[in-house]
Nucleic acid binder design. Sequence first.
DNA 1: ACCTGAACACCGTTCAAGT
DNA 2: ACCTGAACACCGTTCAAGT
Lengths: 238, 238
Amino acid sequence: MDAKGNRAGGRGGRSGGVPGEVWLREPRARRDALTLDRIVATAVDLLDADGVAGLTMRRLADRLAVAPPTLYWHVKTKDDVLDLAVDAIFAEVPVPSGPWRDAVRELVLAWRATMLRHPWSPPLLGRPALGPNVLERTEFLQGALASAGFTGAHLAAATHGLANFVIGSALTQSTWHSPEALGTARAHLRARADDYPTLVANDHLADQDWDALFERGLDHFLTGLAQGIGSGPVSSPP
Amino acid sequence: MDAKGNRAGGRGGRSGGVPGEVWLREPRARRDALTLDRIVATAVDLLDADGVAGLTMRRLADRLAVAPPTLYWHVKTKDDVLDLAVDAIFAEVPVPSGPWRDAVRELVLAWRATMLRHPWSPPLLGRPALGPNVLERTEFLQGALASAGFTGAHLAAATHGLANFVIGSALTQSTWHSPEALGTARAHLRARADDYPTLVANDHLADQDWDALFERGLDHFLTGLAQGIGSGPVSSPP
DNA sequence: ACCTGAACACCGTTCAAGT
DNA sequence: ACCTGAACACCGTTCAAGT
């Protein structure tokens, strides 16, 4: 994969024979315009391939066949690129419909799946995420919970709680994505069975079914939530 | 705060008058030995002051009055320093005692408080955390849950679920720590009330009591958990 | 065993200059 | 309006060399 000189492939060389050929070419600006969308899409590719460490303004520019400073006309800083990349992948999360508990489950599961497809993303949620895709899904989540009867502080606790639960889950799971990391971690634990009897007895970092584990935890949470609807000091005043 | 030349303050200059003074000084190696502990403690200081971006091997070396390459005798890579720093702050989390639900609540709340005191830490949990302090607290958490009657997949779901919930919560809360970030975010939302009616109506990113919000969510989760003890396919076989 | 100077191969970003 | 070359002020890390 050559990163340079793929500028549309016709600028001089063997294509120069036809007279008047200029008019047959679209104007360059249309052909390979450097748009924000292209920048973000390429950034996501780079992140998927090599993680956060792999995204470099210089590498990004190279992949786009452009000089590094050019990026700064379209973007203010590298952090901008990261923020845009995060919002971009949220477009992959379908917004569901149906009864609240199913819809919430569906949204949350798809949300998690998307983050796991892009393992670089969970830590990046430690930055303000206010892109349209993120907000649209948050709006839906809170809307579903509100329609379920949550109000006030209960609603806020449910919304943030669910979001935090997915994010935290994706963060730790993406940590243990590689089997070898899990393997050495387990060995480390087993070698210290005296210090960590419970963890070892229950094979804490086993190569388990993380999906099922998450769904189980989610269901516990939803159950606790459903039980809390309408109770408490906020939504049921005297 | 001068970062250089604080090597014990007596090497030349006004202290050279006393004859035989060499013998009164402790050997240099004892006085300001560069230990792993000092490196990690200084790293935590740097992280607390300026965040992850503020921790640089060169700045760290400077603060320790040492040449940058020296650090690489004590540490293999910068990531080592980060991993050690994360484990170091977990020492601040007291390991509680008492009935399981209270103990779990206590641990989880202290855990969260510590992360919020060191806002750089939540994103770093996206790396394998196997230090003794982290493991000791995880062992305690799982032990408390096991003593409460959780077994098998329920136990794993409870342990990971709680950990993920705290981590996720600390991650997002540390994002919105600064009032100005919250302020502009709210303004951004309010300006788009048509797109995000629920979020705006419920003042999603209000400057709320995050502690109370977290405890509410935690209680929902614990309620859901307590209800799940002993049920399900794993812990109650036919 | 512990520490250093010099150097390598990178970074993000600015800025005057080009078209 | 959009792109570039050259440069600035940094990085993490290696390595031969010092004590």
